Simulated assay, not measured.
Amino acid sequence: MSIQIFILSKLMEDNNYPYKLKKQLSEPIPLDQLGGLTESKLYYHFDSLAKQGLIETVEIVKEEHRPDKQIFTITAKGREELPKKIYKLFENADKISDMVVGLASIKYVDREKVVEILEKKLKKIKDHWEQITNFEKQIQIDKEHEKFAEFMSGYVSTRTEHTIYWLEELIKRIKQREI
């Protein structure tokens, strides 16, 4: 879904074609390689978006000794669907790294709605963490498993506190329009 959001967001700015988007993703940092985005995957998503009626070919550029270039534009339906896809991405994200494309496209959605989604996510994490810590207090751990339990407890608490901190920081920065 994030590839489709990326494509739709780029088409909101200007008409474009798959190979050019792939090049934009690879410079200066090879985000395409880091994300495992191949040219065939990109073309697949362009085709999928076209079949959904979210984008359409606006021009075909013919060049000598090169394949034809299909230039795409976003449709009215695509403009309507983009925010829905972005909200869904935030709702389904398990961690902030899953939200990167949504954050990069935040100008196409209502920030307050994104904040609401993230605050619900934060509350769920905090409630779950509270349940775990209350449960942890009730468990008796024998000597044999004490070190293992300490390790796991430290790992889970550090990770959860880290997640809570950065989610709170993200919410704050969205509210302050820094992101």
Rank of each mutant, 00 (worst) to 15 (best):
Pro18Ile: 05
Lys120His: 09
Glu81Lys: 02
Thr38Ala: 02
Ile5Pro: 00
Ser40Asn: 13
Ile3Leu: 15
Trp166His: 14
Lys41Phe: 10
Leu122Arg: 04
Thr133His: 08
Lys62Ile: 06
Ile60Cys: 08
Thr38Asn: 02
Ile60Thr: 14
Phe6Arg: 06
Ser9Lys: 08
Glu116Pro: 02
Pro83Thr: 00
Thr57Ala: 12
Val100Arg: 01
His45Ala: 09
Tyr155Ala: 11
Lys121Leu: 10
Tyr165Pro: 04
Ile29Lys: 13
Lys84Thr: 00
Glu56Ala: 13
Leu118Ser: 01
Glu91His: 01
Lys120Thr: 04
Leu89Glu: 05
Ile29Pro: 05
Ile71Trp: 07
Glu169Lys: 10
Val109Tyr: 14
His128Tyr: 08
Arg79Ala: 04
Ile132Asn: 01
Ile86Asn: 05
Tyr87Lys: 01
Ile141Asp: 05
Val101Thr: 07
Phe90Met: 02
Lys77Trp: 07
Leu89Ala: 06
Trp129Met: 09
Val115Ala: 07
Gly35Cys: 12
Lys10Met: 14
Val100Tyr: 12
Gln140Leu: 00
Glu146Lys: 14
Ile71Asp: 02
Ile29Asn: 12
Lys123Thr: 15
Leu25Ala: 11
Ile132Gln: 06
Lys88Arg: 09
Glu81Pro: 04
Ile29Arg: 12
Tyr19Arg: 13
Leu54Asn: 11
Leu49Asp: 05
Leu82Asp: 00
Thr163Asp: 00
Lys172Leu: 09
Ala93Pro: 01
Leu49Met: 10
Ala93Tyr: 01
Ser26Ile: 10
Glu168Phe: 07
Ile29His: 11
Met1Asp: 13
Lys41Ser: 13
His45Ser: 11
Glu136Phe: 09
Glu169Ile: 05
Lys123Glu: 14
Gln52Cys: 01
Pro30Asn: 10
Asp98Lys: 08
Tyr43Pro: 08
Arg173Asp: 14
Leu34Thr: 14
Ile174Gly: 03
Asn134Trp: 07
Gly36Leu: 03
Ser9Glu: 11
